[in-house]
Design a protein around this nucleic acid. Sequence first.
DNA 1: ATCGTCGCTGTAACCGGTTTCTGTTAACCG
DNA 2: CGGTTAACAGAAACCGGTTACAGCGACGAT
Lengths: 340, 340
Amino acid sequence: MSNSRMTVREIARLAGVSVATVSRVSNGTGQVSEEMRRRVLEAIEKHGYRPDHLGRALAAGRHGALGLVFPGLSGPYFTELIQGFESEAGPSRASVHILCTHLRSDSDAQVLEMGRRVDGVAVIGGTVSDDALLRLAEKVPVVVIAGQGPGDIASVRPENPASMAALTRHLLADHGLRDLVFVGNPQGSPDVSERWAGFRQAHRDLGVTPPAEPVAVGLQQADGVLVAQRLLGGTDPWPGGVVCANDETALGVLVGALGRGLRVPQDLVITGFDDVPTAALVTPALTTVRQPVRELAAEAARLLLAAAGRPGDTPHGSLVLPTELVLRSSCGCPAPSAGS
Amino acid sequence: MSNSRMTVREIARLAGVSVATVSRVSNGTGQVSEEMRRRVLEAIEKHGYRPDHLGRALAAGRHGALGLVFPGLSGPYFTELIQGFESEAGPSRASVHILCTHLRSDSDAQVLEMGRRVDGVAVIGGTVSDDALLRLAEKVPVVVIAGQGPGDIASVRPENPASMAALTRHLLADHGLRDLVFVGNPQGSPDVSERWAGFRQAHRDLGVTPPAEPVAVGLQQADGVLVAQRLLGGTDPWPGGVVCANDETALGVLVGALGRGLRVPQDLVITGFDDVPTAALVTPALTTVRQPVRELAAEAARLLLAAAGRPGDTPHGSLVLPTELVLRSSCGCPAPSAGS
DNA sequence: ATCGTCGCTGTAACCGGTTTCTGTTAACCG
DNA sequence: CGGTTAACAGAAACCGGTTACAGCGACGAT
């Protein structure tokens, strides 16, 4: 039945036809008479033949695979990204290779190596050096997700500065808050950098002096908990509000604040960015900015698949997907609320 | 310099040697004179030649890749798994293919398809049907992570029943709690099934009647928040304690309880399983069971890499990695605490 | 009757490597 | 000096597919 040692030539012998005919039948290309097709399909069925992926890839000069490079952090953001990417690659029969550059120094070399095994690579912004990105783009189509590459490398990212500015303006103007802090490391990722810029811009627009420095920490829930300890545990006065670079840290700050007996938003206002599922469910519900994470990754995969058809033709331009301000109660708005 | 159209034959021509010699030099196999080696290395260096992965894989009959199949849920558990797997595969120059079976009906076919593109597959328990697993194992080495496959398919899993029983006994005997509820769906994953069994066993050991049914929900933080709503929002009496199948749901329950103004552990005891980074940082710190997630995945990758050498030789036996009870304050223990 | 065309099939080259096997050369030994 | 052997290089086969090209019979047109 399912002998794995079956090859085109073996099937050709068994069906009494040539390898070319077997290949034509199994691919649906070229002209094959009904009689031949029947004989070949019968042999294929009977012996459970499936064309070998490597042979096919070698002949076609295509790998049938896409790569996804990410920093290796935990959390729902990355799993969401992976799934969005995969949901687009799967239907095109492209397998997905992943690479975590987490803390490793040889990540540039690894990314280049990956470039030789796939038909296109999506890289999360801030993951690899610009130099490596350019070298990679010489070999294979590249798209940067949530960031901007050097040169004319394509990118897909969410709208960050304007929506973060809108959120910040809401806190400053509508709720009359001052002494806001920004939690996130602008050096760590382009997303955070743009959000920090939007945060400061909103201050300047309203004639308020923004803080000189962000609270530069990572993007995971544990980082948020640590920030809560630092901000609320000491003798310093509490900030008027904590604007977090993403929902995960916001949830960390929230759980830290609640664990200390603080009331949110009465004692402290907290906002996030992403709109992860948990954000709508916690008490108080988290005010945040909705970001189309899955679509971001799916769009990147789509660009790569399109570019893989025409080799050497790396996609151009940058795509900015819209975001949406989601006002809930953690900023002081009444419980059920509408958008901006 | 780095002409990507370089092939063995081209390098052979340029260096004035045969393709066999080029292959020998680039692989370090066989005997090559110093003079030849120098000439070949010079040509390789000068023209930036790197052997093509497909050609090499085809000739070697090996893909140089491992597959990882997971359900496609969010959260730190899976990113941790991916990284553990990758950290072991990377040094062996094996790339990592991933597949999310999330909600898709054709996942069995996809898993089989993946089996034809890699040298070994690690499958998270409960992700694909036993039938598909057996068919897959005929083609390629398979290891089940956190679960047990049918037949003699190898598995790597954490010790679940005993440690969950120890945790439950601690709550029942040391803290004198009753009316515990178990949060998690035993049907959904083998891990949860074993933990539910340990939970019930501890009750029977102490002559306490366990609850007939678990609170069957998913494993994500949002599910925990929903449980908190259901358990604490109605008019029913609160349970004496909430034993969660993993930390994520426990953190969800915790944030739900704190958001309602409950005090933990005074008003409600909550425990988790996994010991994610956040567990130690929240207030109150979460009592849980430490599970070596990275090691689980790394061990699976190791087994697959070893088996990939000898084809058709799927690894056997099951490996159970030890877990550790971590008592913190969410169960009522004093703040800093030692192990079981 | 001859030529051209169309439809179908098979042979062989090719994708880019690895490896077997043969052959040459030189060193070593009796 | 003849013979054995070790070291090394290259030609060719092979991995498992795809496809350019050639060949062949049937048919219609001139």
